[in-house]
């Protein structure tokens, strides 16, 4: 190899740097790790989804209950107002009738 020329050096380097296969089972091991990694966050995702959906439903039920209570209170107030108004109107009517009979 005196005066080793560039072409010979290129050939020697390509030969020395030839690709080699990884150890047997490498592919399966990496795939196994990616599966574990993919599945490991799934239960957490399910828990998070359950909490979000459950929280949303709970909030909705609570909101409906508050609306119902408010509605019933408003209805009771209205009925009371109507009763008071009705009583006053009856009183006024009686006063008018008594005055007319007096004339």
């Amino acid at each position: 190899m005196d005066n080793l020329d560039r072409l010979l050096l290129d050939r020697l380097l390509k030969e020395a740097m030839r690709r080699q296969d990884p150890p047997v089972g490498f592919e399966a091991r990496v795939l196994g790790m990616t599966r574990r990694r993919t599945t490991s966050w799934k239960p957490w995702l399910a828990i998070a989804a359950t909490l979000i959906i459950g929280g949303g439903l709970g909030w909705q039920v609570d909101q409906e209950r508050r609306d119902r209570v408010q509605g019933e209170a408003a209805k009771a107030k209205l009925e009371l107002a109507l009763r008071i108004t009705s009583a006053k109107l009856q009183k006024i009517q009686k006063t008018i009738e008594a005055r007319n009979q007096g004339i």
């Binding site: 740097m17 030839r18 690709r19 080699q20 296969d21 990884p22 150890p23 490498f26 592919e27 091991r29 990496v30 790790m33 990616t34």
Partner: peptide, 26 residues
């Protein structure tokens, strides 16, 4: 896999270290 493993192997000249690097890369 051969390409990545060989980069590690030829650079580090250590099969176990090359496998570890290739695993991290993938």
């Amino acid at each position: 896999q051969s390409m990545v493993f060989s980069i590690g192997l030829h650079f580090l000249r250590d099969r176990a270290a090359a496998e570890e690097i290739a695993q991290d890369v993938f």
